[in-house]
């Protein structure tokens, strides 16, 4: 091997890996940042929550107001996530399987809730359904309460989580194209058979991924829910709002105990996300091999 090719390959290697020093510095920085910025906040939540011992910790979580907040959070998640799943599949279907004029505008509109402040998301429902709102007098006549009650909380949660499932499915379904569905149709499947036996298995993991992200946001939503909840303790408080109330009452130990519960749920969601992501990557890899 001549001298010049040797030095060229050394240079190329250096370009690929960076010099050992900068490589070590960057990895060190990554670790330091991870520890200080992501790990420490987790540690402080748990340590503050357990400061007065395990007994106090469980008292804070099992207290009736906390349990009713947990229940309300679960209700909001259980209603909003399935609705957004149906919407996400429907939106991804028409965006990815057909071409039509105005498609890019539709995609922009689907993403719109991401760039609207959660507080504004809550505000618009107060303006629609509140006592002074557009539909307020009519709702009052019929004794229906939306704002400062469960329906308002659910609506606000839906608003902020609208794009999640659609956003995950659109690129995935565009990548997959329409060939398999067309084949199913030509072999005699009707529309629903094609959907359940061909499309759903193909998009399953992307769908799970979207559901996981959607659930995380629905569970943790604070600003939008805070506007429409009315903060009635034990009645219209979700878990994140309960954390705020406890914190503002200087009941820090209880606030951090409830926060620890939310933190555990968040870590569980991260695990699910990691798992569905690895399944998607595996599917992509096997599709690439074919």
């Amino acid at each position: 091997m001549s001298n010049s090719t040797l030095s060229a390959s050394t240079v190329a290697n250096a370009a690929r890996r960076g010099s050992p020093l900068s490589r070590r510095l960057l990895i060190g920085f990554g670790w330091l940042f991870f520890t200080l910025f992501l790990l420490l906040p987790l540690l402080i939540v748990v340590s503050q929550g357990l400061k007065m011992g395990v007994g106090t910790f469980f008292d804070a979580i099992l207290e009736p107001d906390a349990l009713s907040a947990l229940k309300l959070t679960i209700i909001a998640v259980v209603i909003s996530v399935p609705l957004n799943v149906v919407f996400g599949v429907s939106a991804a279907w028409c965006v990815s399987k057909y071409s039509f004029r105005g498609k890019s505008i539709l995609v922009t509109l689907i993403d719109l809730p991401f760039s609207v402040s959660p507080v504004i998301a809550g505000l618009v429902y107060v303006l629609m359904f509140g006592a002074q709102g557009f539909l307020g007098p009519w709702l009052q006549d019929h004794d229906i309460q939306i704002v400062f009650a469960l329906p308002g909380i659910v609506l606000a949660t839906i608003f902020v989580t609208v794009p999640f499932v659609a956003r995950e499915l659109i690129p995935l379904m565009q990548e997959q194209g329409t060939q398999e569905e067309e084949a199913a149709r030509l072999l005699g499947a009707n529309g629903w058979q094609m959907f359940w036996h061909v499309t759903v298995p193909n998009i399953k993991w992307g769908l799970i991924y979207g559901v996981v992200l959607c659930t995380a946001r629905a569970m943790g939503e604070f600003g939008a829910v805070s506007v429409v909840s009315g903060h009635i303790r034990g009645v219209t408080n979700t878990l994140p709002l309960h954390v705020e109330i406890l914190y503002n009452e200087y009941n820090h130990v209880a606030a951090f105990a409830v926060a620890t519960l939310l933190l555990i749920l968040a870590l569980f969601i991260l695990l699910l996300k990691q798992w569905s992501e690895s399944r998607i990557n595996r599917l992509r890899a096997s599709a690439a091999e074919e």
């Binding site: 939540v45 946001r217 943790g220 954390v243 939310l262 933190l263 968040a266 991260l270």
Partner: peptide, 19 residues
């Protein structure tokens, strides 16, 4: 863990960072 801030409710992040 890069995705932690998306999964963690913002109120929890808020009180943790304040502490």
């Amino acid at each position: 863990m890069i995705d932690l801030p998306f999964a963690l409710p913002t109120a929890v992040a808020g009180i943790a960072l304040t502490a």
